[in-house]
């Protein structure tokens, strides 16, 4: 008894363990910064070295950038090989993040911030968009779990349509019950006028991009305003309808968040593919029109 009970009596805010983890976090961040700094210095050193050797530094930085981009795209390959012992995807993803940061340095040393010419401008536009969507994906992946948790019980994305139908069916049944009661028919009227569309129809495009609880609060406020027309049974029906509005909104919210995650990940991946194709063209063009390596 004492062994297990004491496990739970251990305070989770054990100062020794907290200090240890704080140290390890500082160490981890320090290591990451050091790795990025070393990589950047190497990049600059390579540039300087090639320049001193009277070589074409654009080729050195360009091929460095190409290598990094190819390494970045390997994450997608790793994900498609789950049964091959290549290390966990978490490690690959973390490496992808660091390489992404290094890629920014490599790109700036190669092309600067802006570029001239249609091919180079396209490449620049693609690069900055990929970088932006990458950052967005990273941020969304960090923040979404907490948003999803705040929206009630976690539900599989594939189960959301079915859950919506179930909620709509329950709301319809409540409205039917209310319609049969002389002291609750206002709920049925409100359902027919307003809630029916909410429960059975899709949410607006704006909501899907930036989901907020405004519409849900409006509906709940309006439903709440009907209290004075209701008896005890009617109030119970109203309470159930309120919770269904909340449930439907939670489902829509979770759906919007899931779609947002997928949207940025897809755009990021597709544009990376396009970037590699355009880069290949750029490499060929560079070799064709440059007489000096």
């Amino acid at each position: 008894m004492s062994a297990i009970a004491s496990d739970f009596q251990k305070n989770t805010s054990n100062p020794i363990s907290q200090n240890r983890v704080r140290r390890s976090t500082v160490l981890r961040v320090g290591k990451s910064l050091a790795a990025i700094t070393i990589a950047s210095l190497l990049c600059l050193g390579l540039q300087r070295f090639v320049s001193n050797q009277l070589g074409n530094e654009a080729f050195a930085t360009g091929y460095t950038l190409l290598a990094v981009v190819m390494a970045l795209s390997m994450l997608g390959v790793r994900k498609r090989l789950p049964s091959v012992n290549l290390g966990s995807v978490t490690i690959w993803q973390t490496t992808h993040h660091y390489l992404g940061l290094f890629c920014l340095i490599a790109y700036c040393s190669h092309a600067g911030i802006l570029a001239n010419g249609w091919l180079e401008s396209t490449l620049a536009a693609l690069f900055w968009t990929i970088l932006l969507t990458g950052f967005m994906s990273w941020y969304i992946n960090r923040s979404s779990p907490r948003l999803l948790r705040a929206a009630g019980q976690a539900i599989l994305r594939s189960d959301i349509p079915e859950a919506r139908i179930a909620v709509a069916e329950q709301a319809y049944q409540i409205a039917l019950t209310a319609a049969g009661s002389s002291n609750a028919f206002v709920i049925a009227d409100f359902y027919q006028a307003t809630l029916s569309k909410f429960f059975t129809g899709p949410r607006s495009l704006w909501y899907r991009i930036l989901p907020t609880g405004k519409h849900r609060r409006d509906l709940q406020y309006q439903l709440g305003e009907l209290t004075r027309y209701l008896d005890e049974n009617g109030i119970e029906l109203q309470r159930k309808m309120m919770s269904l509005i909340q449930r439907r909104d939670d489902l829509d919210f979770q759906s919007a968040i899931h779609n947002r995650i997928r949207f940025f990940a897809t755009i990021h991946t597709v544009l990376l593919g396009a970037f590699i194709v355009f880069t290949a063209g750029h490499v060929v063009a560079a070799h064709m029109y440059s007489s000096h390596w």
Binding site: S83, S88, V89, W92, N141, P145
Partner: peptide, 15 residues
Amino acid sequence: LPTGPACQNACPHAA
């Protein structure tokens, strides 16, 4: 599999 549970290895967020 030599990798152990594929699900665990495939999780990008160590969740």
